[in-house]
Design a protein around this nucleic acid. Structure first.
Lengths: 233, 233
DNA sequence: CCGAACAAAAAGTCAGACTTATACGTCACA
DNA sequence: TGTGACGTATAAGTCTGACTTTTTGTTCGG
């Protein structure tokens, strides 16, 4: 089904984007607009719009007389949510998941520290609610319900940090957490220690204890990293 | 002059993008493709390509029967290099610079720690070279030359971390450092303590001392944050 | 062996006609 | 007066075909 309602060019993107990010067309590969238009059975105008979008993501480069060439992975806009989604849906999902988890481990502790300074009363309340929700669903194979609260918790932290760059990572973190629950191991209930840490982070933020919030969040992310190391040491 | 060689739609973007990110069109504003095409004296096809790109950056949303509506700031793809460039060139440059510096303070220490583990011999050599270059140009109003080495240094650290998400922040850090030198205060020579820290980070990475590399880099970024706090407490 | 002119290829641009979805106003009916 | 169905105007979406421009690679003359 994917994302529909974005017109024909959206449909083309949903096919071409994942194909490119999956490495189906190695860097340097040359595509031709007319040929692609034929393949996808769309007009050249529609195809051109799709190529423009891929170009803005730095996935390809369009040059006269040569065609649309695929750029090397190192130049891709890897922070583009679409690109992240495509890569997570593709073959190097594990690799992408690791990269994002490392990013989390860098960003979230600092975000938590800032949240302790800037969080509004409402945000503190939300945070506590999320933490309690996590506790309530942490046992008895309620993984989906737990995940919802977990995602909400981290989203609130990132938003409450007051930094727009951090706030926009909410979707990324959500993807990582969802990915861990759905596709990686996670047969059993969440680690009780992790649940406790979340509760304590909520406390620290509420009390405005930045250093403690940061340290506790660091422990959470260390745990997330360790999970990955167990999977692929 | 800007970025030329990207065709007409690129020219449109260079005008519309900065206008939108500068808040010239408040969220919810409605633009019409035909009207814009007339204003920029381009065909509708070209205008549509530009709109598609803005749409992929989540700056606008195009809906039938309504037009092209500007999305709220909170939904923008603030990690898109173009968006960052536009915002840095605009009115809320100070705000953007703060956000990015905070991001740096979260990412760079972790990146340095990883670099200490993963850096190749060649990367270590580059790092040392950069640090020496910084020392050599740290006195006598050679700000531009110093900046070049400073940027190169941080770029190597981010790349050597081995994390693609970190590596892609090289351009962002370059912008921040360049912005600080060019538009903010920086009449006098760089802080000698900061220069020393860079040399020590290079050492720590070379020796594979992750904890020390991380800690020293943290001190560098704390310094960068303090600079901003002095400017706007 | 090298440089300049030339030809071909592919993207880029434009104009116009047509299609489609949908917000909004209208009107009948409860 | 409120509510729902219906019709219409609007702006985006799509397609097509012709034309322009840039660039690569080849060929020819020095």
């Amino acid at each position: 089904m994917t994302t529909r309602g974005r017109g024909l060019h959206g449909h083309v993107l949903e096919t071409l984007g994942p194909a490119i990010t999956a490495g189906e067309y190695p860097p340097g590969s040359v595509l031709r607009t007319d040929e692609l238009a034929q393949r996808f059975e769309v007009s050249r105008s529609v195809m051109r719009e799709a190529v423009r979008v891929l170009e803005s993501m730095h996935l390809v480069e369009s040059r006269r007389r040569v065609g649309v060439t695929v750029r090397p992975k190192a130049e891709w806009n890897v922070y583009d949510p679409e690109v992240i989604r495509w890569r997570l849906a593709g073959a190097d999902r594990p690799h992408q998941l690791r990269s994002l988890t490392v990013l989390r481990s860098a960003v979230e502790p600092v975000a938590a520290g800032l949240a302790a300074r800037h969080a509004t009363a409402e945000q503190c309340a939300e945070l506590t609610e999320c933490a309690l929700g996590m506790v309530a669903t942490s046992r008895g194979h309620q993984l989906e319900a737990y995940l919802v609260h977990d995602i909400a918790f981290h989203r609130v932290i990132l938003c409450a940090s007051g930094n727009e760059m951090f706030a926009r990572l909410g979707d990324v973190v959500a993807e990582v957490l969802a990915g861990r629950t759905h596709h990686e191991v996670m047969f059993e209930d969440p680690d009780p220690a992790a649940v406790t840490l979340h509760v304590q982070v909520a406390e620290a933020v509420r009390e405005g204890d930045a250093a403690r919030a940061e340290q506790l969040t660091r422990e959470i992310t260390v745990g997330a990293l360790q999970e990955l190391d167990i999977l692929a040491p």
